[in-house]
């Protein structure tokens, strides 16, 4: 029996963002852009979707004089990610 894959995570860029954040306590927008190879516009849209779903939190601030956006995964996001990986296993084990 295949488990249902979370449609929000089942997207290349959103999954990449979540995979990076699972490994880190926090990452800024520039790091995520470099890690995923996405454009700033596309990444911004996907981060908004993940934030709205409660999977990540976004904190806007400044580092020196430059604006900085820090992203962190939430407990809900971590749980959803773990369930997504579990669901993936059910597909791969067939």
């Amino acid at each position: 029996m295949f488990k249902k894959l979370d449609p929000l995570l089942h997207s290349e860029l959103r999954l990449a963002v979540m995979s990076v954040l699972v490994n880190l306590e926090e990452a800024d927008f520039v790091y995520l852009r470099e890690a995923t190879g996405a454009t700033a516009g596309n990444l911004s849209v996907q981060i908004d979707k993940l934030t709205t779903a409660g999977y990540i939190t976004v904190e806007k601030g400044f580092k020196g004089k430059k604006p900085q956006t820090i992203c962190r995964i939430t407990a809900t996001g971590l749980k959803t990610f773990e369930e997504y990986v579990d669901a993936l296993k059910s597909y791969l084990n067939q």
Binding site: N23, E34, K63
Partner: peptide
């Protein structure tokens, strides 16, 4: 350190 990510 242009971009920043922090692990534990």
């Amino acid at each position: 350190c242009r971009s920043e990510g922090k692990t534990f």
